[in-house]
Amino acid sequence: MIALIKAEYRKIFTTSLWWALLIPVVVLGFGAGWLGTAFGGIIDMIEEFSASLPLGLLSVALSTNFGTIFALLFGAMAFAGEFRSKSITTTYLTANPRSSVLWAKLIACAGVGVLYGLANVLVASFGALLGAGQDMGNFGSFGSWLGVGGAGVLSMLLWTLLGVGFGALIANSVLVIILPLVYKFAIEFILSISLIDTAISGISPYLPGAAGNGIVSNLAVPLFVSAVAGPDEPNTPRAAFELLHLFFGGTYGHPWWASLLTFLGYTALFVAGGWFVSTRRDVV
């Protein structure tokens, strides 16, 4: 198994896929961090807040929720790309049992997912720091930043693992790119809008995209409101929360850990589906 994991790491780092998808994660992370806190500085001047708004927390959440799609694509292509290049045949012939290939890929890609998550959090935080004029108050307390950053790394990791399972399930390098993009940015968006004010609107936080976004946003938004409102947080109108969730993801009143458990379920489902199909698929 160790030899298989080493082989997977060699496959990853001898191709351009990992760094090609890391670039947009870094660029989006820096942009979200800088723009978020720079905008907060304008609000500070206009509204004359007595303390800095901890918009750095929201910026990290926003950059994470944009960046996770690239982590998913990396995980999916790490598996489906082998079917395109036909290298999967050699991989399966040198691995016994076949299922060990999936586990080796999950372990190797998990490391890259953590790398993506750390890069996103650090670059978004750096961008937020520059946008805030090096004002550390834009991150709230160190514990708040650490919690949101940790959730961001965990989210990126889980999206990567889900991508590996999805790639094993579909095994088509074109479809594993098109389907996630269409679903996340079109189908789920339309579905979420159509569920508003319906009898089943309560299922919205449990949709895959909403659950994945909620891992970070359902932690960052309450921390932001708590830092701004202080003792008056319970009196903060629901509309304020919903406006923040509209821009930065997540769902009002839905705890971050519930989103985490939901997305863990989706990840396990795709990995199990990928394992079942990949161990029975014919290869040439």
Rank of each mutant, 00 (worst) to 15 (best):
S278I: 09
Y206M: 07
F70A: 09
G133Q: 11
A211L: 01
G249R: 12
F166W: 06
K6D: 14
M1R: 11
L146D: 11
V277N: 13
I215L: 10
F276R: 15
S278T: 02
V277G: 13
V153C: 06
A151I: 08
A186V: 09
L264A: 13
G143E: 00
Y116L: 05
V228S: 13
V60S: 15
V114N: 08
G113P: 10
F66T: 11
L154I: 08
C109I: 01
A268C: 02
G137E: 10
Y9Q: 14
G117Q: 00
S217R: 04
F166T: 00
L162I: 00
G111R: 06
M136W: 11
F139L: 07
Y92E: 14
A229M: 14
L28H: 10
L175W: 03
F224P: 13
W159N: 01
F126V: 06
I42R: 10
G230C: 02
S59G: 13
Q134H: 03
I107N: 09
L55A: 10
G140I: 04
L158S: 07
S144P: 11
A258K: 15
G249S: 15
V114K: 03
G274T: 09
S16Q: 08
V277S: 15
L260R: 01
G209C: 13
A110E: 07
I187D: 05
L57V: 08
V123T: 01
P208K: 05
S204C: 07
A272M: 09
P234L: 02
S226T: 10
Y183G: 15
A61G: 14
N213W: 05
G143I: 04
L223E: 08
V27H: 11
G147V: 05
G167H: 07
A240I: 00
E188K: 06
I46L: 01
V112K: 07
G40Q: 00
V121T: 08
G143Y: 06
I200N: 01
L175N: 02
A199I: 01
S100W: 09
T267N: 09
G113C: 01
L264M: 10
A128P: 12
A104C: 00
V182G: 14
F166M: 03
I178A: 06
A3E: 05
G117H: 05
L223M: 04
V225R: 02
L122H: 07
A186G: 11
S125K: 04
M1S: 12
G147T: 05
A80E: 08
K184Y: 15
G152Y: 05
L58H: 08
T90I: 01
